[in-house]
Amino acid sequence: METIARILVVDDEERFRKSMVRILKSKGYVVDEACDGMDALNKLATGGFDVVLLDLKMPELSGEETYNEIRLQGFDVETICLTGHVSINEATQLLQRGVFDYLVKPASVEEIITAVQRAMDKKQLRNNEIEIDQLFKNPAVN
């Protein structure tokens, strides 16, 4: 049985955010939205998210600062960064620090859906590895 991803779209640009939510829902994903980094962290604290689509250029708490908090707080999510301001150096640093993918706005719907599916595949593989590891650590006694 395939797990349906629960996605959090984080972007201060309301028009883009609402459009992404609508598109992702039309593809069968469960989607919530946050208008800034603090809103995102509050929603992530409730649990249950698999993937975060995170805009990097936001006022107050930037996407990079939000990602730092996601890591510090140990949220089990794959993060896909989106930005309209291309910086190869920034992209490289974020990818080295664990961001799953880095997409440049305006990314096509196909690019975003593909990135989300790949992120879900990675998360599912990691969860399967954890389950297998637990089986070996705690074998059932027959």
Rank of each mutant, 00 (worst) to 15 (best):
D36M: 09
F75S: 04
E60S: 14
L82T: 03
R71N: 14
I70M: 11
A91G: 12
V52M: 04
D121R: 11
G47Y: 08
M58V: 08
D121G: 09
V51A: 03
L95N: 04
P106Q: 04
V86C: 14
I70G: 00
C81D: 00
H85G: 02
A40H: 02
P106R: 07
Q73W: 14
K122V: 03
T83I: 05
N128G: 15
R97W: 12
G63D: 05
I130W: 05
N89Y: 12
G84H: 11
A91E: 07
I80V: 06
G63W: 00
T79I: 11
G98N: 12
C81Y: 00
I70W: 02
T79K: 01
V109F: 09
Q96H: 10
E69S: 13
N42T: 06
A34P: 03
V52L: 15
V109L: 12
V31S: 12
T46N: 05
L72E: 09
V99C: 05
L103G: 01
I130K: 06
L54E: 03
A107W: 04
S87N: 06
E65C: 07
C35Q: 05
F75E: 05
K123F: 02
I130F: 06
F100L: 02
L41P: 01
L54S: 12
V52C: 11
Q124S: 05
A107C: 06
T79R: 01
E60V: 08
L72S: 10
F100Q: 02
D55S: 09
L56P: 12
I70V: 07
G47S: 07
E69K: 06
A119Y: 00
D101I: 02
M38A: 13
E64P: 00
E90C: 03
Q73P: 09
E131N: 15
Q117T: 14
I130Y: 07
T66Y: 00
E60M: 08
V86P: 03
F75G: 01
K43G: 07
Q93C: 14
C35H: 09
L61Y: 05
K122P: 04
D121I: 06
V116R: 00
G98H: 11
K122N: 09
Q93I: 05
D32K: 13
Q96F: 13
V99R: 00
V51Y: 00
E65R: 02
M38R: 15
V109W: 03
A115C: 12
V99M: 05
D50A: 08
Q73H: 12
L82Q: 08
N128W: 15
G48S: 14
K122L: 10
L44T: 01
L94Y: 01
N42S: 10
G84P: 12
F49T: 05
G63C: 02
G47H: 07
F100T: 08
D133I: 13
K123D: 07
